[in-house]
């Protein structure tokens, strides 16, 4: 039995080593399946919970154009959640279980959505910085070893660049506006910059999940590599529109050809993950309430199907 397990693992890892994708019906180690369910469901929950901070500004968007764009973006986030839920379901976990894990706190979602959206500029900052950081991660995940996850990522990446560009456009417009608008944009930058860097997770030296995820090619780049990539491409974009990055230690490192940055406040990171962020409670209560309030819709859909089947058989 144990020997069979070892053979299975060896064959699996050889397949991964050769660069083959793993598909739902392929044999896979329990650890691989478990890691994927955890990572993909967290990713799906993040897309869905991420609709809340943006939804906060739908009724107060400054123009009809802005409102239409924001609605389309929020709909995309819901769609991305659905791509990822269905990819996760191919691993044998049901949608009910996934949602229950979210509601009981067993599954997490990205920490970033536990921060509030205080002004319209925050919608710009989310699109530009938060989606920008997510894109760096998702581009890397397009080459992840699990086929359904990889395909979902390819689809998501195609749509995300609209999100980032609309966010940057909001920031650029505000930075070309009045003194008050500029201050608002800078304030959003100051509040979203560090949480965006935290989105990539702990430093490689402190990351508990890294080993297996790399060997099994679930992850293709480390947290620090991806974070560096995000910083390097974002600094110039901030400069172009006159925003200051709120990090006094940020400077170009000529030798390494990348930016050095200041110390990330990991105490805040772990505190917010632990449940003590500004909006943790609000986000989860909202999701549970809306889920429960929607129960009658699912029941009605089932009743309608039963009625259709009944009249077909009659």
């Amino acid at each position: 039995m144990e020997q069979a397990q070892e053979t299975l693992l060896r064959e699996f890892e050889e397949k991964i080593e050769c660069g083959f994708a793993i598909e739902p019906k392929d044999k896979m180690p329990a650890g691989y399946r478990k890691h994927l369910i955890r990572q993909m469901s967290q990713h799906a929950h993040s897309e869905v919970i991420g609709m809340q901070p943006e939804g906060n500004w739908v009724t107060r968007a400054p123009s009809l154009r802005a409102k239409q764009i924001l609605l389309a973006k929020i709909q995309d986030e819901g769609g991305h959640g659905l791509y990822l839920y269905s990819a996760a379901e191919t691993l044998g976990v049901s949608r009910d279980e996934l949602i229950e894990q979210l509601h009981t706190g067993k599954a997490k979602y990205s920490n970033i959505f536990n921060y509030p959206t205080l002004s319209w500029a925050d919608i710009g900052a989310i699109g530009w910085l938060v989606d920008g950081a997510a894109i760096v991660n998702q581009v890397s995940l397009q080459r992840t070893s699990y086929g359904p996850y990889s395909r979902a990522m390819v689809r998501i990446c195609k749509e995300e660049s609209f999100h980032q560009r609309q966010g940057y456009e909001i920031m650029a417009k505000m930075m070309a506006g009045t003194a008050d608008q500029k201050a608002m944009a800078q304030d959003a930058m100051n509040r979203w910059w560090w949480p965006s860097l935290m989105m990539f997770g702990p430093h490689d030296s402190d990351s508990p999940h890294t080993g297996d995820a790399f060997r099994w090619k679930i992850k293709r780049h480390s947290n620090d590599e991806l974070r560096q990539k995000f910083i390097d491409k974002t600094v110039q974009q901030a400069e172009v529109i006159g925003l200051t990055i709120p990090d006094k230690d940020l400077k170009w490192n000529e030798a390494k050809q990348c930016y050095d940055h200041g110390e990330i406040n990991w105490e805040e990171f772990y505190r917010v993950i632990g449940g003590d962020g500004p909006c943790n409670k609000q986000r989860m209560e909202h999701h549970i309430r809306v889920h429960n309030e929607g129960a009658w819709v699912r029941e009605a859909a089932e009743a309608y199907r039963a009625k259709q089947q009944y009249s077909k058989n009659a």
Binding site: S86, A87, E89, R155, R298, A301, E302, Y304, R305, Q308
Partner: peptide
């Protein structure tokens, strides 16, 4: 393309 959840053909 992927999968979805629904109760009947039209949905």
């Amino acid at each position: 393309a992927g999968s979805i959840h629904a109760s009947d053909k039209q949905m």
